[in-house]
Design a protein around this nucleic acid. Structure first.
Length: 493
RNA sequence: GAGCCGCUAGCUCAGUCGGUAGAGCAACUGCCUUUUAAGCAGUGGGUCGGGAGUUCAAUUCUCCCGCGGCUCACCA
């Protein structure tokens, strides 16, 4: 903190001290509100004076000598207040004009409409409820347009509390996030899903290909991993007879930070017994389109220059066919690595030499197809070797019943008909272990207890995971995941 | 992890072809009893992200470091 800052702060601390000397607590215990800003404006009737007590933060002020206006803001909105020296008396008015932008105050007064038409509160008494010592960024607004918007992204992320005070869009976006999550919960609850909580600290981190965070339990003296996915525990619950379960909580992956990645992110995973991946598609498109309709009032939403139509049904196309559609390459007819490599070369890609046919196909998909998938689409039937927990297709053992929903060029989820054959699952794990031993540190670990669970019999089931932060990105139209996470991970200052 | 860009007053930003910096808002002092990005007049406030180098002189040029943004890579 430099001299200038401390000047501004010192002035305010001085005001606090002066108040305390007069026996006034600048942080009193309580203030009873009887009204909210928005509700006052919504219910105002001309000619009917209403006595109200409102609390909020001073966001603007216009002092004009012996009278003054200010706007105070509560969560519902902002309302103008009007104070006159003649009403308050000299001492109280002086205390009133000594308030600062950012102070939280409680005001009692009478509603009225000014001669320029603004519904306001004529102050009869005013109490400081919490002094704001640190100067806020000064953001002004006219007709919904912000001036000198709080623009320093680092500060907005580090001091989200300041961002929330001064950036209405930020406030709205996080409220929308909360409503999306609440909407998912009620959508699933209405359909009989049971919300459960499974371990975040796991001895074997399974269910995804990712590097985990490691922590240590002192009493047991064992390392534990923060979960990278809840999948294997949720499926144990399907074994246990819970036929519809979901978990909506954090996963942790020890990987890079980007506009699309935060080390802890929120995932919704659900599993449904006696369902398959077609049922998961119906849930995905039904849930997301319903959320859009309920929360945004439309299924057509604008995102970063594109308009996306979420109206079901979404397009369904296989992995092989969508590659063919966008590149002309037909993996149904490719039977050798050489041919696959030649195909990749034909679209300007140079895959690593040790890749299999299907890994080359995946590279072509990711490099040449993915970012073109603006409208919602279910890409179905992925290669088995990329999907160690999904059930094989009966008509093609190289493929599995898996899909990923794509919107605006981004994978927003992952789903399959769950592999419930313990023999096959064991073989898949063994293959993963082999890859891990060959140096693939994202390959999965053997989980013998999970195999043990499957050996008790898991009914056929569909499973679905949706990345909530990315879904929220779509709904709030932001290019950065940090705008959807209240406190994104940043390097400590 | 790599590349590019940024970091100047509390905030938003100018600027210095190298001679230690400005505006608006905020703050402070006046004036102003229906204003609303209030207005008018005046005042104060900066080790120009940190360090080193070159130079008579560095906020400006060079290098290193820090933090952030964006893009790429990995992934959800």
């Amino acid at each position: 903190m430099n001299a200038e800052t401390s000047d501004l702060i010192a002035q305010r601390i001085e005001k606090v001290n002066a108040l305390r000397q007069k026996g006034i607590n600048p942080y009193p215990v309580r203030f009873a509100r009887t009204a909210l800003a928005k509700e006052i404006k919504d219910t105002f009737v001309d000619g009917e004076e209403r006595v109200v007590a409102i609390g909020g933060r001073i966001r603007t002020r216009r002092l004009m000598g012996k009278a003054s206006f200010a706007n105070i803001e509560d969560l519902s909105g902002s309302i103008q207040i009007y104070a006159k020296r003649d009403d308050l008396g000299e001492e109280a008015y002086e205390r009133y004009t000594g308030l600062d932008l950012g102070d939280i105050i409680g005001v009692e007064g009478k509603t009225f409409r000014t001669k320029t038409g603004e519904i306001s509160v004529h102050v009869t008494s005013c109490a400081l409820l919490a002094k704001c010592i640190n100067p806020l960024p000064v953001v002004k607004e006219k007709d919904g347009v912000l001036f000198d918007e709080f623009a320093d992204k680092e500060l907005r992320y580090r001091q989200r509390y300041v961002d929330l005070i001064v950036t209405p869009k930020s406030r709205q976006d996080f409220i929308l996030r909360s409503r999306i999550i609440a909407g998912i919960r009620s959508y699933l609850a209405e359909r009989g899903f049971l919300e459960v909580e499974t371990p975040m600290m796991q001895a074997i981190p399974g269910g995804a290909a990712a590097r985990p965070f490691i922590t240590h339990h002192n009493a047991l003296d064992i390392d534990l991993y923060l979960r990278i996915a809840p999948e294997l525990y949720l499926k144990r619950l399907i074994v246990g007879g819970f036929e519809k379960v979901f978990e909506l909580n954090r996963n942790f992956r020890n990987e890079g930070i980007s506009t699309k990645h935060n080390p802890e992110f929120t995932m919704m995973e659900l599993y449904q017994a006696y369902a398959d991946y077609h049922d998961m598609m119906a849930i995905t498109e039904g849930m997301i389109s319903t959320l859009a309709q309920d929360l945004l009032g439309t299924m057509r939403i604008d995102y970063q220059g594109s308009t996306v139509d979420l109206t079901p049904p979404w397009e369904r196309i296989t992995f092989v066919n969508i590659i063919k559609k966008y590149t002309g390459i037909d993996f149904e007819t490719i039977t050798t690595v050489e041919a696959a490599r030649a195909a990749a070369e034909s679209v300007g890609l140079h895959p690593d030499t040790d890749l299999s046919i299907w890994k080359i196909a995946n590279e072509i998909f990711e490099e040449r197809v993915e970012d073109k998938l603006i409208q919602p689409v279910f890409v179905m039937d992925y290669p088995k070797e990329l999907s160690p927990l999904a059930k094989s297709r009966e008509d093609n053992s190289a493929l599995v019943e898996r899909f990923e929903p794509y919107i605006v060029g981004r994978e927003i989820g992952n789903a399959f008909s769950e592999l419930n054959d313990p023999f096959d699952q064991r073989a898949r794990f063994e293959e993963q272990v082999r890859l891990r031993e060959a140096g693939d540190d994202e390959a999965q670990m053997m989980d013998t207890d999970y195999i043990n669970a499957l050996e008790y019999g898991m009914p056929p089931a569909g499973g679905l995971g949706i990345g909530i932060d990315r879904l929220v990105m779509l709904f709030v139209n932001t290019a950065s995941i940090k705008d959807t996470i209240l406190f994104p991970l940043l390097r400590p200052e």
